[in-house]
Design a protein around this nucleic acid. Structure first.
Length: 564
DNA sequence: ACTATGCAAATGGCCTCGAG
DNA sequence: CTCGAGGCCATTTGCATAGT
């Protein structure tokens, strides 16, 4: 501990703060000190800190390392009844959240009474008398850590001094002072300025990375807490059983994840080849994660993640990640476990990608898609969260090459060819083949300019009468983009990809497709899509005969390369 | 309050290959 | 000949934030 001659303010150095926390064995006490050291709360504020201020950090969507909490005198004891905001490190909030779910819950059950304050004693009661007991436990920890003089308020001084110091490295002194004043709830900045005197007395080396250092040492406990939490039976809920991971009999009988109906060529994701390489647990966890995504996709009608995206997770991400896991297993000479997947493991995976001979953008995609799957596994509680570095592949969106439009003569000849083909189709009868459908699609696209994938997913009711112009129609297509945060099953304005006005000839094409392929569509598994056809029209009695499908991108591509 | 900008994630596109 | 799988790359979109 360092003291200054002119003031009575005493603060802890970074190392002393760390020692203090390490000397505390009781997790609740440690958490109280950690909150005090990272937010500068007063003793009475710690004692009356409301339970309701603790949130699941996962639900805090702003990508900041601190979570802003607004303290309200109606919820807790605050000096001068003055509301203020404090910034809680995300890692501390995570620890508080785990405390609430785990240890606090147990203590509350001991007394059988629900409490509104956050921190509870071993007997499940709030800390009485504005947290008078904190002094004893801080003193005890201080003695164990070899800190000669300490009290609860020193933790607040320590926060103030170190935060001021850290902020003044990058911001003006005034800014830093005002920030710390507001966090501490000082009425005047002159109170805050007292801490400036401490600064000059302290050595730089003691001051750096104060908060991050404090977080680091507490991480161990936090991870233990999390593991305990995961080991408990899942909370009752309708999807609780879905998210449990059955690891007893591997490899599983079912090694394929089926994707719902979609407009890409992907149908089934095969995991069989990844089993038996020393990482079956990991393979199975990833398989289950994709399975959950696929189900969510089917239930939400593709509004969560599109089937194409899930397929890409498998193809781009896992096809790189799972072989890497196999290599790691070989290197470790043992079966890989789920708790092997930590920050270091991810770093090694990144290094592994970096030495592969694919381009940077591919490395990035492989990493990003793997991350998406692992993050989902983290959400389900199967592996640790927060294991990813900030951005391992910065500036990957370098040079871009745009596509050039067709020249005018080219465009004319394409349109001419389309017109001829369309005329032949109109003359014919019976259901349309995939090639004929491709002509229709291109004709629609050429007249309306809609994008290919939305076009492939046009619904049977895609054509609406134009509200104003009686001789026109509106062609409505939907985009599938969306995150889990906007799950919606209803059509929303934001989901409309385009609403182009269409002349009667487009309406005629769509009507034609709708009528001629109606029988096929009715017996199809994709009856909502307008552009449905029979795969292998009329021939090939193999296993695909009679299989019904949408017009596939592959068919469309082969057709369009044909007309070039 | 609004706009421009930069970054990361999400998504689309195209090629090749093997099986039926 | 068609389809889906495998693989790589490019572009678009969403989000946060700095700047006005």
């Amino acid at each position: 501990m360092l003291r200054t001659p002119r003031t009575v303010i005493r603060v802890l150095s970074k190392h002393q703060s760390v020692d203090l926390l390490n000397a505390t064995t009781n997790p609740t006490h440690k958490l109280i000190m950690r909150l005090a050291l990272t937010t500068g709360l007063r003793r009475e504020e710690l004692a009356t800190f409301p339970l309701k201020y603790v949130i699941d950090p996962v639900m805090y969507t702003k990508h900041r390392s601190f979570i802003r909490i607004n303290l309200d005198p109606r919820d807790m004891t605050i000096k001068r009844n003055q509301p203020r905001g404090i910034d809680v490190p995300r890692t501390v909030m995570e620890a508080l959240w785990q405390y609430v779910l785990n240890r606090r819950h147990q203590h509350e059950n001991i007394s059988g009474q629900r409490q509104s304050v956050l921190f509870l004693t071993e007997s499940g009661q709030p800390y009485a008398n504005d947290g008078a007991a904190f002094l004893g436990l801080v003193k005890k920890a201080g003695a164990a850590a070899g800190i000669p003089y300490i009290n609860v308020h020193i933790l607040r001084h320590t926060y103030a001094t170190h935060t001021l110091y850290a902020m003044m490295q990058s911001k003006a002194q005034t800014h830093a002072l005002l920030y710390v004043r507001d966090r501490l709830g000082h009425a005047s900045v002159t109170s805050t300025e007292k801490y400036l005197h401490c600064l000059s007395e302290l050595e730089d080396a003691l001051m750096n990375d104060y908060q991050s250092e404090i977080d680091l040492i507490s991480r161990g406990d936090w991870q233990c807490l999390e593991k305990n939490f995961n080991r408990q039976p899942p909370a009752p809920g309708k999807d609780a059983s879905d998210k449990t991971l059955e690891l007893t009999s591997l490899p599983p009988a079912q090694m394929v994840v089926s994707l719902p109906e979609n407009a890409t060529g992907r149908r089934n994701l095969d995991f069989a080849k990844h089993y038996g390489n020393g990482c079956d647990v990991v393979v199975y966890a990833t398989q289950r994660a994709l399975d959950l995504m696929a189900r969510a996709c089917a239930e939400s009608d593709g509004k969560t993640l599109s089937a194409a995206t899930i397929a890409r997770y498998h193809q781009n991400g896992l096809s790189a990640f799972l072989p890497f896991c196999a290599t790691m297993s070989a290197a470790l000479k043992r079966e890989l476990r789920l708790d092997d997947i930590d920050r270091q493991f991810i770093d090694q995976f990144i290094a592994h990608l970096r030495q592969s001979d694919v381009r940077l953008s591919s490395q990035k995609v492989r990493y990003a898609t793997t991350k998406a799957v692992l993050a989902a596994m983290g959400e389900s509680g199967w592996i640790a969260k927060d294991i990813f570095p900030r951005n391992p592949f910065p500036n990957s969106n370098r040079s871009m090459k745009g596509q050039t439009a067709l020249s005018e003569p080219e465009r004319r000849s394409v349109l001419q060819a389309l017109k001829t083909d369309m005329r032949a189709i109109i003359k014919g009868s019976g259901s349309l083949t995939s090639e004929e459908l491709a002509v229709c699609l291109l004709a629609i696209a050429a007249r309306t300019g809609i994008n290919p994938t939305p076009a492939l997913e046009l619904l049977t009711d895609c054509l609406q009468p134009h509200p104003i112009k009686s001789d026109r129609y509106v062609l409505v297509s939907f985009k599938r983009r969306g995150n889990a945060t906007h799950i919606q099953s209803l059509r929303r304005a934001a989901d409309v990809e385009s609403m182009v006005s269409a002349l009667p000839d487009v309406a005629r094409i769509i009507d034609l497709v709708r009528e001629r392929n109606d029988t096929i569509r009715q017996s199809s598994n994709s009856r909502r899509f307008c552009l449905s056809t029979r795969a292998y029209p009329g021939k090939t009695p193999g296993k695909w005969a009679g299989w019904l499908n949408t017009l596939s991108p592959a068919a469309l591509r082969r057709f369009s390369t044909g007309i070039r």
